[in-house]
């Protein structure tokens, strides 16, 4: 290829990428514009939020809006509930789903295919079909407005079992055989050899569970309506009902509720994206 051709090729490439930058940059700005707007409004006065034309920067930064969130809603206890229900569900699902997923992928027992098929059939059923009976179970156990009540159904996951089974199916047999010859029992093989190998699958499961647990609204709305028992999603929905026009406080509360997951997931972005990508595996 001649020099000029190479140069022309480079020019074309640069031209192309310029278009890519314009489109991706413009679109990206649109994507985060609402959040930038939220941040600015969360440090403005209510009068500034409601002014026309909009003020784009507050005349004086109102940091106290974030402190005020604690007086209009029980933010501390909602945060505690959100953290606890998320942690419990992640731990529960990681243990239970990997145990079951491993058994379905690697062990032989009567009825394996049939039991798995029944569990997988749940994946096609929309969540509303479980909601009324689940509510009754929690009510009968006296667990309304408790962490146990919010967490209980979410400790188990048909999706998680399927995800972990797919992972264990993809691991090589040899290590397992060697351990068996050395006299390890199935639980030792599972916990010492297979679990470490399934780290990617466990990450994917944990990430999906964190996202879903932290953000879910409908189930906790039904189960935990009191201020002290409500996780952040319900707390925000209630706050919006009670202080619909106190915009700076709403923006600050919403920002504080999202921040932990946003910071955590942006920091681990590669893992999170890989996990979400994997969860969509066939």
């Amino acid at each position: 290829m001649s020099d000029s051709a190479i140069r022309a090729g480079r020019r074309v490439k640069r031209g192309r990428n310029a278009i890519a930058h314009v489109v991706l940059g413009g679109g990206g700005l649109l994507m985060i514009a609402p959040l930038i707007y939220q941040v600015i409004m969360s440090i403005s006065t209510n009068a500034e939020v409601q002014s026309i034309p909009p003020t784009f920067w507050p005349s004086e930064v109102q940091w106290h809006n974030f402190a005020d969130v604690f007086t209009v809603m029980n933010f501390g206890s909602s945060l505690r509930v959100s953290v606890l229900i998320t942690m419990l569900r992640v731990v529960g699902q990681v243990i239970l789903c990997s145990l079951a997923g491993y058994a379905f992928a690697r062990m032989r027992f009567r009825g394996r295919g049939a039991i798995l098929a029944v569990i997988l059939s749940i994946l096609m059923v929309p969540g509303q079909l479980f909601l009324i009976p689940q509510f009754q179970i929690v009510q009968n156990l006296g667990w309304l407005n408790t962490i146990a009540g919010i967490v209980a159904p979410g400790l188990f996951s048909a999706f998680g079992v399927f995800l972990m089974r797919q992972f264990f199916m993809g691991l090589p047999d040899e290590l397992e055989d060697a351990a068996r010859l050395d006299g390890a029992n199935p639980f030792q093989i599972f916990s010492k050899i297979m679990m470490p190998l399934a780290a990617n699958g466990l990450w994917a499961l944990a990430i999906i569970t964190v996202l879903w647990s932290w953000n879910d609204l409908l189930w906790p709305l039904v189960i935990a309506s009191t201020q002290d028992a409500a996780p952040l999603s319900v707390g925000l929905a209630n706050l919006q009902g009670e202080h619909a026009n106190n915009y700076p406080i709403l923006m600050a509360a919403s920002l504080m509720a999202m921040a932990p997951i946003l910071i955590l997931f942006i920091a681990m972005q590669k893992k999170v994206m890989a996990g979400i990508g994997r969860s969509g595996l066939k």
């Binding site: 990206g28 939020v49 409601q50 915009y247 923006m251 942006i266």
Partner: peptide, 29 residues
């Protein structure tokens, strides 16, 4: 960097960003 920008809305809490968008779509201001 672009990937991060487009990825952020997906991990936001619907109950939280719903409040923000309600203000973004506010009829008066």
């Amino acid at each position: 960097f672009y990937r991060t920008l487009y990825f952020i809305p997906y991990i936001t809490m619907p109950a939280a960003v719903g409040i923000v968008w309600r203000l973004v779509f506010n009829g008066d201001f």
